[in-house]
């Protein structure tokens, strides 16, 4: 009985994986044939069903880029960058999309520091911090049971503490990335109050990065890091890079 169940489960898993691969290939085929809208729709369907995948986000960004939708393209690239920060193709296309959309995302950090802290994604930094903390804990545990070579122990603890300090610093410097958003609409007004009739301070370009703050009646208080503009933007005009999960 259990064997039948296991075989059924295996068939189900393999069948699902095969179907997903087929959908992805079909979406890629649409892209190659120039059906960018159809490809974008297919990629979004895969993401909705299967969950975040870096390559699907990347390909989705390419589809939106081909359609001239710089806001959705940059959003997809940004989400892919959260998952694979060291993908060169992704970096190239994101820079190209920003250039065409005439938007910038300049970091306030020193370029060398920025290069270091951007080498890993926030989640990778988090894993590094947690794993090195676990390593120190395990080392202490073993050292409590048996006598370890002192020079070896000191070196291991030193490396672990350095990794912990580095990853904690990187997470601190990138603490605002979880509240980043991307402007999607062509005419996104930033208003002084969270109402449709409120006075508009300025307009934001599609693809522009914003910091998302408090929410009120269909609007979010946002800040544009590069221009320093602060105000309320309608929810329909932007999307968070990391979707809110209740």
């Amino acid at each position: 009985m259990s064997r039948i169940f296991l075989i059924s489960l295996l068939v189900l898993v393999l069948g699902t994986a095969s179907s997903l691969a087929g959908d992805f290939a079909e979406a890629n085929q649409r892209f190659q044939e120039g059906d960018f809208a159809g490809a974008a729709s297919a990629y979004e369907q895969i993401l909705a069903v299967e969950g975040p995948r870096a390559n699907v986000y990347y390909n989705l960004g390419n589809s939106h880029f081909r359609l001239g939708k710089f806001g959705p393209a940059i959003l997809a690239y940004e989400r892919a960058r959260v998952l694979t920060p060291r993908d060169r193709d992704l970096r190239t296309n994101l820079a190209r999309a920003r250039k065409d959309a005439a938007v910038t995302d300049e970091s306030q950090l020193d370029p060398r520091i920025n290069a270091v802290v951007s080498a890993l994604s926030p989640n990778e930094w988090s894993w590094l911090l947690a794993s090195t903390a676990l390593a120190i804990g395990a080392l202490t545990m073993v050292g409590g049971v048996i006598r370890l070579p002192l020079h070896w122990t000191r070196r291991a603890v030193g490396i672990s503490l350095f990794c912990i300090a580095l990853s904690a610093s990187a997470l601190y410097l990138r603490r605002t990335e979880s509240t980043r958003g991307v402007v999607l609409s062509d005419t996104t007004a930033i208003r002084i109050s969270p109402f449709e009739q409120a006075e508009s301070i300025a307009t934001l370009s599609p693809g522009q990065i914003i910091q998302i703050g408090a929410q009120q009646s269909g609007f979010h208080y946002v800040e544009s890091p590069n221009s320093g503009l602060r105000g309320w933007v309608a929810d329909r005009d932007f999307s968070a890079v990391i979707p809110h999960q209740p």
Partner: peptide, 19 residues
């Protein structure tokens, strides 16, 4: 000007911050 499509399907990973 833009890099081409990625044809290999990557693994599912969470966008939510681990911290």
């Amino acid at each position: 000007d833009i890099a081409q499509q990625h044809l290999k399907l990557s693994a599912v990973r969470s966008l939510a911050p681990l911290v």
